[in-house]
């Protein structure tokens, strides 16, 4: 609790002729800044000429405030509203949605083939994720890379923006074609987590391209040629995919520091 200075001390503080030692003056000054009551006491003790001067200053300040520009409205800052990068993602997301739309149509046209939506689900988010963390495609990468916020959190935010579009489209596509919802969404999340985890070691872009190519060659191509859904996408594998997703996400969390290092923003 602060003790208020006595009225006598305030009177001496206010009187230019009275002497007050510096330490007392400072403590009175600091107290006055935070105490309206003592300020009111002070006003009663100041000499008349000072009061006239203060009134003149107050009137001048009021006039200037009235004549000056209106203060800018208080804006609430939120990163969500400043969705800078999302605009740059739009073309890629449009492409992903278009490809998935084509897959749905193809499935309707050629029912003997295995579910294309399920086959493409794991690699659907990869173009967006690769784009989101690529120095070639972010015009401001040089500005962003030198800031403390650059790191896993930023990559995850951008990935979330990609998933927010891709996941509903996949869900819609799988229900339309009658494919298993879990076997569409879980591999999609697992591959996203894998791209980020591998990205800690080799760069997200390389990781996404590598995973995409590997999946296309190892699973999609044979499945289309043999017209059978591969074993890894059979409905029984849902638990394995879920565990894989969790493990990869955990690993990515452990490697979070890598995204802040100098080489990670490829």
């Amino acid at each position: 609790m602060t003790t208020h200075p006595s009225a006598a001390v305030i009177a001496r503080y206010a009187d230019p002729r009275a002497s007050l030692d510096e330490v007392t003056m400072w403590s009175v000054e600091v107290h006055l800044e935070g105490c309206a009551h003592c300020r009111a006491v002070l006003v009663g003790r100041v000499p008349d000429d000072t009061r006239v001067l203060l009134d003149r200053v107050a009137a001048g300040v009021d006039r200037a405030v009235a004549a000056g520009p209106v203060p800018a409205p208080r804006r609430r800052w939120s990163p969500v509203r400043n969705r800078w990068f999302v605009w740059r993602l739009l073309p890629w997301l449009t492409m992903t949605v278009a490809v998935l739309g084509c897959a749905v149509l193809l499935e309707a046209a050629a029912p003997h083939l295995p579910s294309l939506v399920t086959l493409l689900a794991p690699i659907a988010p990869l173009p967006g994720v690769a784009f989101a963390w690529s120095r070639r495609h972010d015009p401001a990468w040089e500005l962003v890379a030198g800031t403390p916020a650059a790191g896993l959190a930023m990559l995850l935010r951008r990935t979330a923006a990609v998933l927010a579009v891709v996941v509903p489209v996949l869900a819609l596509g799988s229900t339309r074609t009658g494919a298993s919802l879990a076997m569409t969404l879980l591999p999609c999340l697992a591959f996203t987590a894998a791209a980020i985890t591998l990205g800690a070691f080799v760069g997200v872009r390389v990781a996404a391209i590598g995973l995409g190519v590997a999946w296309a060659l190892a699973v999609v191509l044979p499945a289309v040629l043999t017209a059978r859904l591969p074993a890894v996408l059979e409905p029984g594998g849902a638990v394995a995919w879920a565990l894989l997703t969790l493990a990869l996400a955990g690993l990515a969390g452990l490697r979070a520091a890598d995204f802040r290092r100098l080489t990670s923003h490829h």
Binding site: A140, W141, E142
Partner: peptide
């Protein structure tokens, strides 16, 4: 740090 690159991109 404060950094102005030679060419900086912006949105």
């Amino acid at each position: 740090l404060g950094y102005l690159p030679q060419q900086f991109g912006f949105y």
